[in-house]
Simulated scan of single mutants.
Amino acid sequence: MNIDLSSRHAVVTGSTAGIGLAIATGLAAAGAHVVVTGRTQARVDEAIATIAAQVPGAKLTGVAGDLGTREGAEKLIAQVADTDILVNNLGIFEPKGFFDIDDDEWQRFFDVNVLSGVRLSRHYAQGMAKRGWGRIQFISSESGVQIPAEMVHYGVTKTAQLGVSRGLAETLAGTGVTVNAILPGPTLSEGVGEFFGKIAAEKGISLEQVEKDFIADHRPTSLIKRLATVDEVASLSVYLASEQASATTGAAVRVDGGVVRSIV
């Protein structure tokens, strides 16, 4: 399958590391002009350099700002008025017991994980619909289907993304714009790697052992018995951004290693 996005522009939020960086790299490799976003200019510049090194001739633009805020979204929209592909990847996570999560923390997770995508989708989807073509993705999680007891607030925001994604797909029915949610399972992103690194240092064990223990203790239903790579998640995102995926919309597509025990 030859995926050609050379005539398309894409915005990937939270794309300076992890899954977002892998998606931005994959879209650039498929020919898209990619807007890389992150909180600081230094991180954005570093990500652009990383992608350019992997994809010679990549068409890249960078916008720095906190997209978890209204002001950050307005800044991005002011600099990038339209796009063909929007990947709402920005997200935060933190293991914390339910009784230790206060109101401010709940609000912060909702602002970053949910409202960031709502604001940008509300703007960019209208232009896509007028042009008759577009792709919107929400990077949700298997945690939105199986709420993890160790971070209920994170799981709830990922469930909310599924609702927004399906509702927006219904809103855009017949316009040529597809809206889908991607549900990664445990993935070895930069953030997860750092978290596992702390555990490895505290326990005096290897990262490989931490990963093995995590799967055994917290995701025993995994069929691949390992964490996914960011590139494995990005491959699904690039496909859903393509012309070939034009009949896939309103879907929650899993790349979870079989963690969710469901046949649909």
Rank of each mutant, 00 (worst) to 15 (best):
R131S: 12
L90F: 00
T159I: 01
G167N: 11
G132N: 09
T178I: 03
A49C: 03
Y239S: 08
R70P: 08
E170K: 15
R131F: 03
H218F: 12
K130M: 09
T37C: 14
L21K: 06
S222T: 12
A173H: 14
R261P: 13
S15F: 03
G72L: 06
D256C: 08
Q54Y: 01
V255R: 01
T37E: 02
L183H: 06
K158C: 07
G18F: 00
K75T: 13
I215G: 07
T187Q: 07
E202R: 14
S242H: 02
P184G: 09
F93I: 04
V112K: 03
L76R: 04
G204D: 09
G167M: 10
L207H: 12
A125T: 14
F138M: 15
F196L: 07
G191A: 15
M151P: 00
L60Y: 08
A52R: 14
K203W: 09
A247L: 15
D4C: 00
T178R: 13
I199L: 10
L188T: 00
R131I: 02
G57H: 11
V112G: 02
R122V: 05
L236Y: 03
V35M: 03
T229I: 05
G72S: 10
V230G: 02
E105F: 08
T16Q: 00
M1N: 07
K198I: 08
L5K: 08
G257I: 10
V114K: 06
K212S: 13
I19L: 07
V177K: 13
A252N: 14
S15E: 02
G250C: 14
G204V: 08
D66G: 01
F195C: 04
G176E: 04
F98M: 14
G167A: 10
V145T: 11
K96Q: 13
A29Y: 02
A29V: 00
G57W: 10
E208M: 04
L86C: 08
A81N: 11
M1A: 11
G127I: 01
K212L: 04
K225H: 12
Q161T: 01
I139R: 01
S262E: 06
A47H: 05
G62Q: 01
L236S: 09
A30E: 00
I139W: 02
F93Q: 12
S206T: 15
D213V: 07
V260T: 11
I19G: 01
E211T: 09
G155D: 06
I147Q: 02
S121M: 07
A49F: 04
L168T: 12
D100M: 11
I147R: 03
T175D: 08
E208W: 03
A181Q: 06
N2K: 12
L183P: 01
S143Y: 08
A81C: 01
I85K: 03
Q79P: 02
V11C: 08
L188W: 13
A52G: 14
G72T: 10
V80M: 07
E232V: 09
F93A: 09
G193P: 09
E202S: 13
V233A: 04
D66C: 05
P56E: 11
V164H: 05
V177R: 13
F214W: 10
H153E: 14
V255A: 12
K198L: 09
G62D: 03
T16P: 00
